[in-house]
Amino acid sequence: MSSGRAAALTTAHDLLRRHPLIDGHNDLPWTLRKGFGGDLRRVDLSGPVAGTRTDLPRLRRGGVGGQFWSVYVPGTLQGDAAVTTTLEQIDLVQRMIARYPDDLAPALTADDVEAAFARGRIASLIGAEGGHSIANSLGVLRMLHRLGVRYLTLTHNLNVPWADSATDDPVLGGLGAFGREVVREMHRLGMLVDLSHVAAATARDVLGIAEAPVLFSHSGARAVCDHPRNVPDDLLRRTAANGGVCMVTFVPDFVSPRRRAWTLGLEAELARRGLDRRDPAARAAVEAEFLTDHPRPRATLGEVADHVEHVARVAGPEHVGLGGDYDGTDDLPDGLEDVACYPALIAELLTRGWGEDACIALIGGNVLRVLRVAEAVSRTLAAQREPATADVGDPARA
């Protein structure tokens, strides 16, 4: 390691000791559900956990001071099943926090995050990934907020009846009328509207009515890697005008143009054979053959830094953050293999000329600002209007 790189890494560690790094998205709760049935007696997060990218020692080494834990449930779950499973995931996160009180602390507000960090704890916030989790009910939305959920990603990979996803065939052309009620109610509650996973048209519709800053909890820059999960420049500029933040993800297919091209090649081969690219068994079988002549390219830490820099150039350094999506993806860029690797990314940015103030904003200052503004907007709106009681009989109505 060069002396310059070593000095940058020392500075990165120092910044992370003094300022909370707040990551926008981590899927450890679903990994614990899949691998251990959600039974925390079967897993010890105070040591290495096989098959995960996240545990308490690695969070500490990575300088993580705040984490949005995702209470993701698959989009194939609908109605009561989606709500029940989401509640079980919230319960799992709350039990995890209670089980490790010397390391984790619950956080509902920006002040809670800073207080936890000052006490040497990792502030633990909750984000729900996908509007299917509310089953077309504003009452369920309110109850999720009461249970600690502080952002809702409006869709996951599939459309919901009131909003189009980035990775599904468009139905509404954006946000439906009930979706607008969801956004209004989220602002009244002080719950952040998360636009990762939604179609660009949906995001534009949200930004057209937003009363508080939004966030993209785990997305990249479309101009750097042309993937529908990434954010086009016009939306980055509108996010900046809204006061929001785009938290850059580490998912290789969203990060690396070479990796994206490889995936498109695999999907073209599936299509050539008349197979559904979303069929896991078919995809795995074809991929095993495809790899023989088409080695899978590796994404890199430097490519993630390229996304961070692009968002900062287009939206401004006040509107970029980090949302790794650890334990939500099978593969990660070289140099960012687990949650211990954040200092290396900060060091890379420092070597590219980033100042300490810009790094402090990136790692947590920007999302803390968004939380505080959303809280202030909520206080105003809650005094002005009653809880919404929109008709959910036709959530997609125009």
Rank of each mutant, 00 (worst) to 15 (best):
G265F: 02
L332Y: 14
D102V: 07
R260D: 00
V64D: 12
L125H: 03
V64L: 15
T329W: 09
R58F: 13
A344S: 11
V224K: 14
H187K: 07
S70H: 05
A271H: 14
G79Y: 02
L350K: 07
P257E: 04
F254V: 02
I90P: 08
M247T: 01
C246A: 15
M191R: 13
A383R: 13
S165W: 03
A388L: 15
P57S: 01
H310K: 12
V308S: 13
A166R: 12
M186R: 03
W354S: 09
G335Q: 05
L16E: 01
Y326G: 00
N366M: 00
G131F: 04
H218M: 00
A82E: 12
G130K: 10
V339K: 12
L9D: 11
P213W: 06
A98I: 02
V231N: 08
R121Y: 05
V224C: 14
D338V: 06
P74D: 12
L15N: 10
T11S: 04
I90H: 06
A128W: 02
G190R: 13
A282L: 02
D168A: 15
T202M: 08
R53S: 13
P29K: 08
A390G: 05
A241G: 09
G265T: 03
H13D: 10
D80K: 13
V248R: 12
